[in-house]
Every structure is written in C-alpha cells, then in structure tokens.
Amino acid sequence: MDTSIISNEPEDPIGAQLDEEIASLQSQINSLKSNLKLQTSTILSSQATRNTLRRLQKPTQEPRPQSAIPSTIPTDTSPLNSTTTAQTLHNTTNLYRACNSLTTFRIHDPDPHAVDNGSILALRLDISTSSKFIAPYYIVLNKPFPSSPLLRVHRHTLPPYIPLAHLAERYLPHGKGAVAMGSRAPGQKRQDLNKFARALRREVVAYHNRVAVIKGLRREFRLDKKGRGKGKERERVIEDVSAADAEARQVRIEWVDGRIGRAVVGDGGEVIKCVVMGEGGRDWESERAIMGGRMEGVGERLREGIY
C-alpha cells in the first residue's frame, strides 16, 4: 500500500462559519468608523458649529449671577477650534482641487546651467478616484531652444502607460516648421498648451476610471475576499477579473468552468468589443451581456444570466 498518498481532509464548517462572522463584524466596524468620521467632519464644518465656538471664545461682559447654575460647557475650546480649522482647510483644499483640477504655476530651476535661465512652467493634475484624491501628477515644461518660445516637456511624474509622448508630439510640436502659441503662420504646426493639457487630463482620468471599474467588478464578485466560497454565499462563478494590458483598455474575465473573455473598453467606459471563448467555442450569450452597455454594469448583467 502506498502510504505517500495523503487524503484531503474536509474543511471544518464551524470554523468556516466563524471566519465568515468575524469578517462580517470587521466590515461593520470599518463601516461604523467611516460613518463616524464623516459625521464628525460634517458637524465641524457647519456654520452653526463655528458660530458656537466663536461665542464661547468671547469673554462675557456682564457678571454672571451667583444663583445661576454652573455651566457644564468646557471653557477651553482650543482643541475644537484647531480641529474645526483643520477640517475647514481640508474642505477648502478639496473644493479647490475639485473645481480646479488643472492648474499651472511658474518655478525656477536652481541649476546654474539650466536652459532659459532656469525658467520653468509646471502643470498640476488633481485626479479623484473612488471618492478620494490621489497624489497629484506634475508635468514640467521649459524652453530649451535659444531665442525660441517653443515649449518642450522637461520632466513629469506620469506613469508610463499614459501616452505623453504622443500627446506632446501632437499638441506641442517643436521640430522643423513648428511655431509657438499665438503665432498666425498658416500651414505650420502650432503649439497649443490648452489642448495639450485638456487631452492629457482626459487620458489620465480615463485610465483611473477603467482601473476603478475593474476594482469594482472584483468587489462585486468578491474576488479579493479571504475565504471566498465558504459559508452560505452563492456559488462562485467568476474566477478572476483583471486588466489585460498596462493601460487597462482590455479587461480579462475568467469563469470557473474555463471560459475566458476579453473586452475592449473605450475612453468613456463603454464596451467596444468583446470575445468569450469556451470549450464549445464562442459564448455568444455572455458576449451579448457584456456588450450591453458600459463596463460599470457588466457585473449586474452577468449575474442576471447566472442566478
């Protein structure tokens, strides 16, 4: 008898149930903490709260009667004032970043050998995704050619999957025959910083939207959840959802039964093309479900055909 064969022991149903309950309680705790933080920031940001704190700061002019009941309101409002000031500053910053997602400013390069005496024009892109602002992106432009106002990309913090070189070649040409902004030379390539900035922001926003859609699909099918498939959850049908390329323009969907699909997503989030292949050939029904609209609704459309 071959003793090297090890039988697979069945999973403990009680342990699986406890793990599920612990995960559910942890999710509730995180939700309550987020709700508490939101309610606190809302109260501290209100005008009524600021007016109340200002009244408490003012010294009382009239003497308080001796028979008056002592107030239970704390006299030291410094902690609340500092928290309210910080929250107001945070709200103002977010409002500015939301309304002015693209800003320009001038900086100076301290390098004594820098071109154009170190004069630099910088662009800042503020992008929000999943209700949060991410780290801003910066694009630094300079004028490297003597006696020429032509701009060129000097430095940037953009990820490599943003087609910066293509956009710069299209909107900021600096080769032979190129002219600077404001020039009226017909038949020549003219630089346009406004169109360059708008096109660049559109590319960055579209990329983060595509990534957010993929993350949303993974949450819908609970692909990142530990211990998935245990307990009383519905049977898992989708095995994986991921980006098939660096720009996240193609989304790869893998089913448990071995079917594999690939969808091409446009800049606006719409599904342009889709192919689903299985052992029996193309799955036309799943393709029609995925092609039925925008990528955000793929999870709901697939569940309608599954459950």
Rank of each mutant, 00 (worst) to 15 (best):
Q61Y: 01
A243S: 13
H90W: 02
H108D: 02
P63M: 02
R201I: 14
I43C: 06
V205F: 00
Y207L: 11
G187D: 10
H113V: 08
Q39P: 04
A263P: 06
E220W: 06
R124A: 12
V265H: 00
D192R: 01
W284S: 14
Q250C: 13
P144L: 12
P173L: 04
I14Q: 05
G216Y: 01
R64L: 15
S101A: 11
K225A: 12
L141E: 04
A165W: 03
G297A: 13
G182R: 02
K225G: 03
R97Y: 02
S45I: 04
E300D: 13
G278M: 09
P110S: 02
P10C: 03
L167G: 01
I43F: 07
N142V: 13
Q26I: 13
N51C: 11
S45T: 06
G305N: 08
I162L: 01
L89R: 01
A199N: 11
L172E: 03
L193G: 10
P112S: 06
E285T: 13
R303E: 14
E11I: 06
R202A: 15
Q87M: 10
G216F: 01
I43D: 02
G118V: 12
A135D: 15
L158Q: 01
A248S: 15
L172S: 04
T103V: 04
A168L: 08
A114C: 05
V256Y: 05
G187R: 03
S242G: 05
S7V: 13
L167K: 00
P144T: 09
P149Y: 04
S34H: 06
A243I: 09
A199F: 01
D109E: 02
I260L: 10
R152Q: 14
R55Q: 11
A246F: 05
P59A: 05
I5F: 00
W284E: 12
E21Q: 07
V204M: 04
D192G: 05
K58W: 00
C274D: 06
S148A: 11
A244T: 09
R50Q: 10
P136Q: 10
L121K: 15
T52G: 09
L141W: 03
